[in-house]
Design a protein around this nucleic acid. Structure first.
Lengths: 207, 207, 207, 207
DNA sequence: GGATAACCGAGACGGTACGTCCTGTCTTCGA
DNA sequence: TCGAAGACAGGACGTACCGTCTCGGTTATCC
């Protein structure tokens, strides 16, 4: 940043720009460049090509800089996932089947169409090796479930479903399907199929 | 081996037994020693400690011998998993809730109490990196689903559930919960909780 | 702690004591703390543990503060060595053998019993890498030689040794032995052995 | 040389040749390529540029291959020095002054005119940091002294010098001068000066 | 019944990545 | 305007595995 360009909060898309310390505090531009590099590598090469070394190389950052802020590969992965997981709808149509269909459909589509699917797969894989990743993954799952369980809690509140339904457990059932599809590379589920699956939850299976 | 004084203090009782060549054909004892070593390593150290190098070391085998017969780490993993497959029950109590509860409870218990849980977690992790593993995992899932969907088909046949329920999809819902629990290390689900989860599938949620 | 505590005595043995800014001029307490930290580290861990980072850490100083006043690691080393130079004797007993024995014996003892040996070893090592250190070392050697050669000049003046003996070269021979002993960690030379070595210089080897 | 990635396709035909394993034993070509690379780096960039990483890069070898055979940087350095230190004369002219002059003169010349001087300086520097290097250096010195002390032993045998002269100590005096000159970068000593120095040893200083 | 072919152990090889430590530079903030 | 603090890019450290490559030795099978 030797020139006078003002972009302090700018979307510094150029990782190759020479960055230097901005004093005794974290440089947001560096952090962003690292996240960007990590994201791009995951998008281009997948988890197999994702290494701290490669991220550092692409972001023109030092490895210690990465380890300073993300104590493990998993943390970086999780951070990247977090940033990417924008635009998840929080539907409230008044119909639980509809809400869950919209939610699950959107989740699968986002995983399919953006790098976030690869990112999350990577995180799951990492969690099988790295205990920090495992903890992070579990914490993240808990939070996500709690948040999205709001759909089910609303349905219960409005009397659409029984009081005996545990919202967290119910939400876990829905989410689990998505996870399984993700790790087995079968995200191509049409909306109709999604609705059918959701119906299997919400509607009675009974004849 | 020029003399018999080899390796009396072997760190590994099983593997330290000297195998001699049986000529120009595959030595089953070697193959077994490799499988055993792989299994033990997974049981003791988990996926993190599972490397071809470590397996070769423990099995007192050469790395090329492993690569000769198992072209990838994933193949070895899958082989190990297959051998370990203990008898999953195929309950037929006349009640779908009961059948699925027994099935799911057994699956979680086996993953919890035998090394097979670790092995399968490892396979899932490997599948995120290795395409051969991915293919193997998916094929395996298909077969398992088809097989265990028999429970649901029977329920449908006897009129317990609607004709519109897709047995494979329904079975995938049940199985997905187990997978998610496995990869997030939350297998400790009591039978009552399992039954509650299964009920969420089979019973109506509606008030 | 931000006021009052003056710390005027400057010979602060504890580097962790808080120093406060004295405004826009060099803080002697800081400089002293840095020198002290450097000395202690060299004494405790030797050259291997001596890094600007470690010195800054122990002195509770910023690295730039060190680099501001000592442009290279070698300068800091040399500074430390200079401060540590305890009184080397300048014997004048009337006998050259006696003078040199006292001198060499004292040099070896000081290097052995005080940190200055380690410091000087470090300086020699540093000089092999850093040209500033090399220059400093050589200048220092020249001065030392010139100074201690006085012993030999006196012996020549009083007719004890030949006019053809070059005092500087002769002194270099004596000093060289000490250096070699230092860098090969063989400083434990008894006075008798020192005298024997000196005699090899001054007395005739001839039968 | 603004960065280290410059000449990966080195002009060096030997090093760039692709080498592979020759079975379960050390590949001499690899060892030689590593030694060559180490030597060249020392010759070109000196000790400052000498790193295992750099050697591996230039030799087109893996770092583990280097560490497999040379457990420390110092061992590699010492090995390189050993190979290079050919052609040291072992004079036996019948005159000790002559023998030592030839020897010392040759030593200084070789250090001056071949890379071995740089190599040995590096070893001395390394020994101040690395205990393995220190041990190696000391062992090496002992052997060299013992070997070259033969000149003095011969002189004693033929009655040229006193029986009381300790050959090892005497040889150490001679060698020390060379070491000191080496580490202070003052190897440019003319033969006459060398002879003068040696004379200071062998002849009487007395008037 | 001697040659041959494939297996097996062993482990070296060129590499990639790990996570840590240090270098020397830079900037902010407080005094 | 200095000092403390610490972030930064970068390079090197020594280790663990990867997947490949001989090697030497060992049988069974084929000629």
């Amino acid at each position: 940043m030797t020139d006078g360009t003002q972009d302090t909060d700018g979307t510094d898309a150029e990782a190759s720009a020479q960055r230097t310390s901005i004093g005794a505090r974290r440089n947001p531009a560096t952090a962003e460049a690292i996240r960007l590099a990590a994201t791009e590598i995951l998008a281009e090469k997948g988890y197999a090509g994702f290494s701290v070394e490669a991220v550092a190389r692409r972001a023109r950052a030092g490895k210690p800089t990465i380890y300073r802020w993300w104590p493990s590969k998993a943390e970086l992965l999780l951070d990247v996932y977090h940033r990417q997981k924008t635009g998840m709808p929080e539907p409230d149509t008044g119909s639980l089947v509809e809400d869950l269909t919209i939610y699950l459909d959107a989740l699968l589509r986002i995983w399919r169409e953006t790098p976030s699917g690869t990112v999350f797969r990577s995180l799951i894989a990492e969690a099988q090796t790295d205990s920090a990743a495992a903890r992070a993954l579990r914490t993240y799952l808990d939070q996500r479930l709690d948040q999205s369980a709001a759909m089910i809690r609303r349905a219960r509140t409005r009397g659409e479903i029984s009081e005996t339904v545990d919202p967290l457990l119910a939400m876990e059932l829905v989410t689990s399907l998505a996870w399984t599809r993700l790790v087995t590379d079968r995200l191509d589920m049409e909306t109709a199929a999604v609705r059918a699956a959701v119906s299997l939850f919400v509607e009675s299976w009974r004849a």
